[in-house]
Amino acid sequence: METNSSSGSLLNKRLQKELMSMQREPSPGVSINSHTLHGNSLSQWIIDMEGAEGTLYEGEKFQLLFKFSSKYPFDSPEVTFVGPNIPVNPHVYSNGHICLSILTEDWSPALSVQAVCLSIVSMLSSCKEKKRPPDNTLYVKTCSKNPKKTKWWYHDDSV
């Protein structure tokens, strides 16, 4: 009981703090879509993201959906690309799922929404050829709605 209530307040307090620091010191190309924050419990955020200058995604706009479970920050957030423009990238499936180790097994509670966003920006920026993952069609047909239920196989350490 006690741990439940304390973890609940930790969740909200921490999300508030992350929100404030992102609004106070925003990283370039990453901003919170403030419409999504009104009137709900901070458990879902939408982040507006811009492709970095000088990369294949320059000038493109993307949206990321963050869903926080009650165990955040001990449990990683569920992060997917949403909206009309899903980046074409070898690590992003056409349904918006992202193959990025820090979103599952390499997650750490010292990471934050901002750190995840920066990792995704740099993942996109290091891309040399815009293409979908080789198993995209099969994966999109068979996967669960929640990317955290996928058993990801991380093979590319160059990102």
Binding site: R14, P109, A110
Partner: peptide, 8 residues
Amino acid sequence: FECNICLD
């Protein structure tokens, strides 16, 4: 002196 987990 902030905790790296709760940021407090």
